[in-house]
Amino acid sequence: MSKKIVFLGCGSMGEAILTGLLAAGTPPQSVTVTVRRPERAEELAQAHGVTALASNEEGNANVEAVAGADVVILAVKPVGIAELCREVADALAPGAVVISVAAAVSLEQLEGALRPGQPVVRSMPNTPLKVGRGVVALSAGKAADEHHLAAAHEIFDGSGVVLDVPEDQQDAVSAISGSGPAYAFYLAEAMAAAAQEFGLSAEIAQILARETVAGAGLMLAEPGADATALRRGVTSPHGTTEQAIATFDDQGLPGIVSAGAKAAAARAAQMTEELAGK
C-alpha cells in the first residue's frame, strides 16, 4: 500500500492495527501517528519506524498529519471522536477515507462532524488483532464507494478476517466479536476456578484452563472448522464430556450466553444515543 495513512490516536487497539498493517508490507515511512504525550510518540517511532507527533507539544499535530492523507484512522476513545472530526474536517482531502474504530459511534454522527461528502467507514475490530487473529466488521457511509471500502479492507487485512455488514448489525457484531474475547477469558476463569475446587493448585488450574481454551481456539481457526462438529468429536456417547454438556444445557448456559450478548448489544445502542446527545 503506497497511500499516506494517518492514525489519530494509537492506544492498544490502534497499535495492533498498525502492527498488522506494517507486517502486511506497508512502508513505515507512509504512516503518520498522532498521540498526546511525547513519550508515547517516541515509543511508537522507535518501535515501528513511523512518523509520530505529540499534540501536547505540537498543538496543530492532528491537522498537520491529515493534510494530504489518503486514509485517516480515528483511534481515540468514542467520547472524543466528534470533536476530533470537527478539528480536522477542513484539512482532510475530499477523497480521503476516514475510518473509525470507536465503538458505538454511528456513521451519522461521524458524517455530521465532517464536511459533506467525506467518505467514512465505521469498523468494529476486536482485541485478537494484537496476535493477527482478529475479526473486523466494516460498514460504509453514504459517500464511501467500493474503492474506499477496499482501502479500509487493506488496513485490516494483515490483522485478521474482515467482513462487510450493514450498520444496523454493528451492535450485534459488537456483542459477539467485540465483547466475545472477554467471554472466552471468562470461561477460562471459570474452568480454572472449577479445577481448584478439585484440589488442583492455582498454577496448574490456570495452565489447564488457559491452554485448553487457547488450543480449542486454534482448532476453530483451521479452514472449514465448525464448532458443532468439533464439540461432537470430543463428546463420546455416555462419556464424561456428554455429562458436562448435558449439565450445561440443563443449567441454561446457551440462554445465559444469549442474554449476555443481548445485554451487550442493548448497551451499545444506549451508548450511541448518549454520544449523540453530547
Rank of each mutant, 00 (worst) to 15 (best):
P119K: 01
A192L: 12
V234Q: 13
V71A: 01
P223T: 15
E203W: 13
R36G: 08
I207L: 15
A113H: 00
A103L: 00
A75P: 04
A52R: 01
T212P: 11
Y186L: 13
M271H: 10
D171R: 05
E39W: 03
A265T: 01
D90Q: 13
V234Y: 07
G14N: 00
A263E: 07
R133H: 04
A209V: 13
T34N: 02
A103E: 10
G112C: 02
V63K: 13
D70S: 11
Q109V: 12
R36E: 09
V161G: 09
S12H: 11
S159H: 07
V98P: 07
G224V: 14
L275Q: 09
S258F: 07
A216L: 15
G178Y: 10
A67R: 15
K130G: 02
E273R: 12
P116K: 04
A221L: 14
G11V: 02
A137F: 03
L92Q: 12
K3R: 06
G14L: 00
A276W: 03
P223V: 13
A193E: 14
A16N: 01
L53C: 09
G25L: 07
Q29C: 00
I204P: 09
E211P: 00
K130C: 01
L84T: 15
G178T: 10
V101S: 08
G14R: 03
A227L: 13
A264R: 06
E108A: 12
A91Q: 08
E242W: 06
R115S: 12
A52M: 06
A102Y: 05
G49S: 02
E83W: 08
A61R: 06
Q169Y: 08
A229L: 11
E43Q: 04
D168Y: 02
A263C: 10
A69R: 07
M1A: 01
L107C: 09
I99V: 11
P128E: 09
T127F: 01
E154V: 04
R232Q: 15
P125F: 10
G95Y: 05
L200N: 10
A65M: 09
M13F: 00
A227N: 13
L110T: 08
L218P: 10
A144G: 04
E273H: 12
A246P: 11
T241D: 02
R40Y: 02
G239L: 12
A202E: 12
V6I: 08
V76L: 11
T247G: 14
A104E: 10
A140C: 04
F248S: 14
A52F: 02
V72N: 05
A113I: 06
H153C: 06
A152G: 03
L53R: 05
P27L: 05
S174D: 05
L275Y: 13
